[in-house]
Design a protein around this nucleic acid. Structure first.
Length: 709
DNA sequence: GTGCCTCGAGTTCC
DNA sequence: CTCGAGGCAC
């Protein structure tokens, strides 16, 4: 929905001129004035207006050109070791739970001492600084955690960061920490920007120190960064080689060594003996917050012992051995102007609050998700109400409560049809979300699926983002994923539409060509099958290694699904369970239960989907997945654990087994190759004896793990 | 059957 | 980042 505009024709003319000006600045003068996101916002605004006033679309409309989303000028480089994010906790209880979880995972006693470290969490940009033979050779931003941007030249201008390390330093050592701007320096910088600008109105200021640090570090010209007052605080490390040269066995010891090499380390960094001391340090830091020279958004706790950190490992993108204790979010009051409905790739209808712009935590918030119909009922909000907004985890804005105090009224009516295609909106029993039933005919869903296909964790086609996908879709150039790979046949057509940027067309086509081979897990994830996200896609890809093998399994499963019928007189409930079991068994992948199996097989049972996939397979080749596993006595074997393990937890044992290439099953059957028996083993041990399955004690298991290295 | 843990999906702002 | 819900252990 677009709010009424007094003079839409004039607004469109202004937008066309503005967007064209930024295109020139970016392409001809290499001096963009606004961020990529602000540019996208202009393009989006233009599109919304055009949708609302189709008669007024201009001949020189920016939407008739291929979008020219500026690419980052900085070189992308993969991290030697992924830069992970941190789990967040907001209450004492969550921190206590974190420590309890650590104990459980390590199979420690409930009151066993767990030494933690506590330090303030600086609100800046994470950076990884790579030193080889003591010399700074590479500095990367965090990026997506796997790949960062090369900011080496800029980092060399930061006074806190030594170019060479003195003392005994491992051959390769990556120092990780936060690049930030002190509050006072931020204020001075903004004053300077005003003074230097032609007029105060024309000055481009930064909204907060974090943005100032980000903007200053990601400069193309190091000279600009050099003139910006950036600082650095070390908080960890990445690759260390040789690993034995790591200067200590605890977080504290290594951080001391890093400080000894000349890096600033927070003077509020302390080891603490237990969770109560950790929380006391949190309160000390919280009390000092306003007086600290830099912005912080919480306190980070880490398990001090590095051997424990190693055992704890990580979940998805965050380590199990650290947590950020965040300060309570800042709140603000504003008006709820409207409630719009967005349609996701799965058809989910999401209500979004359009807010009167308000500053919360240094950022102007105009939108906030309302999640679902229940949330709107819970908040009791209607358009026009005053509401309280906060930035949860200091990032995502959310509506916390409505301030309406008038007479009783009915809940805001959630739309009964999809705003994009008009199909009925339905809510399944037991589900929270309304979904558009339009499926293939709903253009919003089709576009969202294409955007997902090209997105970073899927095919990762650079230059093919939201704006271009929408344009290509609406122009009929791209209707299905395979069409993307046929765009090269229409190069002239693309260039003709895009007078400004034939170079950008070629860049795009090149980026597309690069993805004609893609890892199987990305391929699978990109299809956008419900319940098949990154992790499940990876599990499936690793389980079957090749598209051919996975294809055979799914093909067989589809046939099973088609062939299954209730046996005469079989109750519906029993049949459903039997069917579920058959489908799960057919896919035979840990983590894939009835729901996921049905979604996966259902997707391929649909003829249209098969057509789309086969069409795509004529254009691209999924590469086989070679799992990195250490060879061991249990590689390729099926292992079952039973009883209470003393030295490792069940989760950890399972992780060990998988790293050795073994499959972990829940119960003993004739397929089981090895049963590892802990204390108080029950029926499984008995069954293993009956079936003649080999058994091992926990100590023997530890030996198998150890001998594989 | 119940409860915990992890994953999937959708979203915001830069 | 949060929330709902699927998977699996107990």
């Amino acid at each position: 929905m677009t709010e009424p505009v007094l003079d839409p024709a004039a607004a469109l003319a202004a937008l066309a001129a503005e967007i064209a000006r930024h295109d020139r600045l970016y392409h001809d003068q290499d001096a963009p004035e606004i961020s990529d996101a602000d540019y996208d916002a202009l393009v989006r605004r233009n599109r919304e207006l055009e949708a609302a006033y189709p008669d007024l679309v201009r001949a020189d409309s920016p939407s008739r050109r291929v979008g020219v989303t500026p690419a980052s000028p900085l070189r992308k480089v993969a991290h030697a070791k992924a830069m992970m994010s941190l789990e967040n906790g907001f209450s004492d209880g969550e921190i206590r739970e974190f420590v309890a979880r650590v104990r459980r995972f390590l199979a420690l006693d409930e009151d066993a001492p767990v030494v933690l470290t506590a330090e303030p969490k600086i609100d800046g940009l994470s950076c990884s600084l790579r030193y080889e033979k003591g010399a700074l050779v590479l500095a990367l931003t965090r990026g997506d955690g796997a790949v960062g941007e090369d900011v080496t030249a800029n980092v060399r201008t930061i006074g806190d960061i030594p170019a060479r390390l003195t003392g005994t330093v491992p051959d390769v050592f990556e120092v990780r920490g936060e690049v930030y701007m002190a509050k006072a320096d931020f204020a001075t910088l903004n004053e300077r920007l005003i003074a230097e600008a032609a007029s105060p109105e024309a000055a481009r200021q930064f909204a907060n120190p974090r943005n100032a640090a980000a903007g200053s570090l990601r400069q193309k010209k190091a000279a600009i960064t050099a003139a910006r007052p950036l600082r650095f605080l070390a908080h960890g490390w990445g690759e260390v080689s040789p690993e034995v040269d790591l200067p200590g066995e605890t977080q504290t010891a290594v951080m001391r060594a890093i400080a000894g090499w000349g890096f600033p380390v927070s003077d509020l960094f302390v080891p603490v003996d237990d969770v109560d001391q950790a929380l006391a340090q949190y309160r000390r830091i919280e009390a000092m917050r306003a007086d600290l020279p830099f912005d912080i958004d919480g306190v980070v706790y880490k398990v001090d012992r590095l051997d424990w950190q190693k055992r704890l490992g990580q979940v998805a993108r965050a380590p199990r051995w650290a947590i950020a204790h965040k300060f309570p979010a800042e709140r603000a009051q504003t008006a709820l102007n409207a409630i719009d409905i967005q349609v996701g790739r799965t058809g989910k209808l999401t209500p979004v609050a359009r807010l009167e712009p308000v500053t919360v935590g240094g950022v102007v918030v105009t939108n906030a998700t309302l999640h679902n119909a229940d949330e709107i009922v819970r908040l009791g909000v209607h358009p026009g109400d005053r509401v309280i907004v906060q930035r949860a985890g200091d990032v995502i804005p959310q509506v916390v409560e409505g301030l309406y105090a008038g007479p009783e009224r009915a809940a805001w009516p959630f739309p009964l049809t999809c705003p994009e295609c008009g199909s009925a909106a339905e809510r399944e029993a037991g589900e929270v979300d309304y979904r558009c039933t339009g499926g293939l005919i709903c253009p919003a869903q089709r576009v969202e699926r294409l955007i997902h296909f090209a997105s970073r964790h899927a095919f990762d086609i650079r230059g093919l983002g939201l704006v271009r996908v929408e344009q290509f879709f609406h122009d009929g150039l791209v209707q299905s994923p395979a069409d993307i790979f046929r765009l090269r046949e229409r190069r002239e057509e693309l260039i003709a539409r895009d007078r400004l940027a034939d170079l950008s067309v070629d860049n795009l086509l090149e980026a597309i060509e690069e993805k004609r081979t893609v890892p199987l897990d990305r391929f699978l994830f990109a299809l956008g099958i419900r319940h098949v996200g990154q992790v499940t896609a990876r599990d499936l890809a690793r389980r079957y290694r090749s598209a051919a093998a996975l294809g055979r399994v799914i093909h067989a499963a589809v046939r099973i699904r088609r062939a299954m019928r209730p046996v005469l007189g079989e109750p519906e409930r029993k049949y459903v369970i039997r069917r579920e079991k058959a489908l799960v068994a057919a896919i035979e992948t840990p983590g894939v239960g009835p729901e996921v199996a049905d979604a996966l097989i259902g997707f391929f049972a649909e003829p249209h989907n098969r057509t789309v996939v086969f069409d795509l397979l004529r254009q691209v080749r999924p590469t086989d997945v070679v799992q990195e596993v250490r060879a061991s006595r249990v590689s390729g074997k099926t292992v079952v654990f039973t009883g209470k393990l003393e030295t490792v937890s069940r989760d950890e044992a399972k992780a060990q087994a998988e790293a050795l290439g073994a499959k972990v099953a829940a119960s003993v059957s004739k397929k089981t190759d090895l049963l590892v028996i802990g204390a108080d083993a029950g029926s499984k041990a008995k069954k293993a004896a009956e079936l003649g399955v080999a058994v091992a004690t926990e100590a023997e298991w530890a030996a198998i793990v150890a001998e594989a290295g």
